[in-house]
Amino acid sequence: MGLIEIARRNSVWRGMDYYNGKKVISLEKTGTETYSGIVSGSNGNKYMVKIDKAHPRKSSCNCPFADGRRVICKHMIALYFTAEPKVALDFLKEVESWEEEEEAREQQHYEELEEYVKSLSKTELQEQLLEALIQLEERQNYYW
């Protein structure tokens, strides 16, 4: 698993924001699979970041979220995307593709739902509607 797969979703998206906002101040390739650099934080602090693509859990950052922990933070993701912009582009393309597929699945679901509703008789439709309204009311009463 790579840095993106291990990171929390929020860290990836905030890292993308930092990448787009050019928050990476310095970047150095330190090995075949490693980089180090300085990333500016939202509070103006500068964080020392090291990433290891081969062993992501060996990556480090001295920000409050990641310091002393084996987690992937937004600063690491920003450095990674800056070091390898194609990875950032591929990530965005993958998200876009997933969203398009999800939209198609949702559209298909609604079409199937419409087909089902149209197949019901008037009596069946009234019974289904009454049952749905009762369930909705029970849920509202449960949360109040």
Rank of each mutant, 00 (worst) to 15 (best):
Y47A: 02
V71S: 03
A78T: 12
F65H: 06
Y110A: 01
E138C: 03
R70L: 05
A66F: 04
T30S: 13
F81T: 07
M76T: 04
K50N: 14
A104N: 14
D17Q: 15
Q107P: 00
N10V: 14
M16P: 00
L3E: 07
K22D: 02
T82L: 01
K23L: 05
M16K: 07
D52V: 04
K122S: 15
S59E: 07
E28C: 01
R57Q: 13
F91A: 02
E96W: 05
N62T: 04
E127G: 00
E127F: 00
R14P: 01
K53W: 05
K118M: 07
Y110Q: 10
N20G: 01
Y116Q: 10
Y35V: 02
E96V: 03
F65N: 01
M16E: 07
Q107E: 13
G21L: 08
R69P: 00
L130H: 11
W13H: 02
R14M: 03
W98P: 00
K22Q: 09
S40C: 10
I72R: 02
Y80E: 05
S121E: 02
Y18Q: 04
L133A: 13
F81M: 08
N20I: 09
E102N: 06
G15Q: 01
S42C: 02
E96H: 13
M48A: 12
A83T: 02
V39G: 01
E138D: 14
S26V: 00
D90S: 13
A78D: 07
R14F: 13
Y142N: 11
S36Q: 07
I4M: 04
A88R: 06
Q108L: 15
T123L: 14
E124A: 09
E111M: 12
S60W: 06
N141I: 02
K53T: 13
E137H: 13
I4D: 05
K46G: 03
S60Y: 06
K50E: 13
E102M: 14
C63I: 07
I51D: 08
L3G: 05
K46S: 11
N20V: 09
F81E: 03
N62G: 05
K118A: 04
N141G: 13
S40R: 14
I72D: 00
N10M: 10
L120M: 14
G37N: 01
D90I: 05
E33Y: 12
N62S: 04
V24H: 11
E114Y: 06
I51E: 09
F65D: 09
E84T: 06
K86V: 02
E111D: 13
R105C: 04
H55A: 12
C61T: 10
L136H: 14
A78R: 08
H109K: 14
P56S: 06
F81C: 04
T82P: 02
I6S: 09
S119T: 08
G21K: 04
K118I: 01
K86S: 07
F91I: 01
E124T: 06
E131L: 11
E33C: 00
N43V: 13
M48E: 14
T32L: 03
E127D: 13
S26F: 00
S60L: 09
K46N: 15
L3H: 04
R57K: 15
V71Q: 12
E112V: 02
L27F: 01
L79Y: 05
N20L: 12
T82C: 03
H109F: 15
N10R: 12
V49R: 10
E28N: 10
E94L: 12
